[in-house]
């Protein structure tokens, strides 16, 4: 089971998330950082062979993801929101994530959830965090 991270390149939270994840799961990841990159990656791999972390910085990103929801196909995702707004949370939950977290936490909750999800999928091939640059 692989982990793919979606984040805008300028989202400062991604570095903190990466650092925290690397303490839990090795090897250290490179990451997917835009929509095109994310969907290009999903198109080329068997659905459900990765967990996606959607690191959201703006509401519009959620709206766009919602529009393209069918392109996420059978992939399980975790949504991380920048703040605690009701509207934003409702939009995040509409993606039916396995977990909804917030970027103002230390991400340890996300790691715990990931660990549990990945344990469920074992034994499968080696776990690693990886990704690529979109543009």
């Amino acid at each position: 089971m692989d982990i793919i991270i979606y984040s805008q390149p300028d989202n400062p939270q991604k570095d903190i998330l990466l650092k925290t994840l690397s303490e839990f799961i090795k090897p250290v990841p490179v990451m997917v950082f835009d929509f095109d990159g994310l969907f290009c990656q999903l198109r080329s791999r068997v659905s459900g062979s990765a967990i996606i972390i959607l690191l959201i910085s703006h509401e519009e990103e959620l709206e766009q993801l919602m529009e393209d929801r069918s392109r996420l196909f059978n992939t399980k995702c975790i949504v991380v929101l920048p703040e605690n707004g009701d509207d934003l949370a409702m939009k995040g939950l509409a993606l039916h994530p396995r977990y909804l977290g917030y970027a103002d936490s230390d991400f340890s909750d996300i790691c715990q959830v990931l660990e549990k999800m990945m344990n469920k999928h074992r034994p499968s091939h080696k776990t690693g965090i990886w990704g690529f640059c979109g543009r």
Binding site: L93, R98, Q112, V113, K116, K120
Partner: peptide, 19 residues
């Protein structure tokens, strides 16, 4: 209204209650 999914298998015990 909302259809809220809670995946109990993904939630570690210490998080379930607050989630």
């Amino acid at each position: 209204h909302n259809f809220i999914v809670v995946d109990c298998a993904a939630l570690p015990e210490q998080l379930v209650e607050s989630v």
